[in-house]
């Protein structure tokens, strides 16, 4: 195992993050704060409790998930797409490193960035609403699994993308709607039965439900089902990445 290479990729990506700290941190924090102001304070004050939790607090896990998922995808996809775009990808292909090490470096960095942003939003939330975390360790595990699995997904996206438009299209047209419709701002039980059934096909429902359980001890789906769903998603992403490097699809002629 070439740990030095993994560390080099990881640190190189993290330096990029800190070099553009305003863009990396401030943007998600400001947009999330606006969500709290609008949904938590303005609208939330007129909504009764959901699942026994004040609405302002109820949306905290969903908002963290929304940001963490989009940031994991964006950071990982950009991290691997940018070397392709500017032509420095040859360095990775000609270095004595395996696909696993490349993935660990890029996905590790993307997951770390998303985790940092997730924690900053968690801290920001305390300024707007009162809440406590029922299962802190479980919250940490869910956050970690989510960042890693969606960073893996972002990595696939970055390999697949042939231009910046393609890089944006999947997060914009598929991921963001899935997160919004995955119970970020409401409980699935609030939906009519038909839409509850439809929602069960949305993988993000399981993540948000599990994450919310870690906060408030209430969930739309059993916690083990949530863990299984995220494990399955991670497994699928890993299999696709393994296939990409085995065949050289979109990376090696």
């Amino acid at each position: 195992m070439n740990w030095t290479a993994v560390r080099s990729i990881y640190l190189f990506e993290m330096f990029r993050f800190f070099r553009t700290v305003a863009q990396s941190l401030l943007a998600p924090v400001i947009s999330t704060s606006l969500y709290f102001v609008v949904f938590g304070a303005a609208i939330g004050s007129r909504i009764e409790q959901v699942e026994g939790v004040g609405y302002g607090a109820f949306i905290v896990p969903g908002l963290i998930m929304l940001t963490v998922i989009t940031q994991s995808i964006a950071n990982a996809s950009f991290g691997i797409y940018f070397p392709k775009f500017i032509g420095t990808f040859f360095e990775l292909l000609s270095a004595p490193i395996s696909f696993l090490e490349i993935v660990m470096g890029y996905v590790g960095a993307a997951a770390t960035k998303a985790l940092i942003i997730g924690f900053i939003i968690l801290i920001t939330a305390y300024f707007f609403v009162d809440f406590s975390i029922a299962h802190p360790l479980a919250m940490l595990v869910f956050l970690l699994l989510t960042t890693i699995s969606f960073a893996l997904f972002g990595f696939i996206l970055g390999i697949w993308a042939g231009n910046f438009e393609q890089l944006q299209i999947v997060p914009l047209l598929i991921v963001t709607p899935l997160v919004f419709l995955g119970g970020s701002f409401y409980s699935i039980s609030m939906l009519p039965p038909f839409w509850q059934t439809v929602s069960m096909f949305n993988p993000v429902v399981y993540l948000i439900s599990g994450f919310r359980w870690a906060f408030f001890d209430t969930a739309d789906v059993p916690i083990l089902t949530s863990l299984l769903a995220i494990g399955l998603f991670t497994g699928i992403c890993l299999s696709i990445i393994w296939w990409i490097f085995r065949t050289g699809w979109r990376i090696r002629q």
Binding site: F12, I86, P96
Partner: peptide, 29 residues
């Protein structure tokens, strides 16, 4: 092996020393 490609492929915003350090690290050094 060391490879110098035909095109000037470099990250424009990166510092010289960091990009050289990165290359060294990729080779496990």
């Amino acid at each position: 092996i060391g490879l110098v490609p035909q095109e000037i492929n470099l990250e424009p915003f990166e510092r010289v020393i960091n990009t050289v350090r990165f290359s060294r690290g990729l080779f496990g050094k």
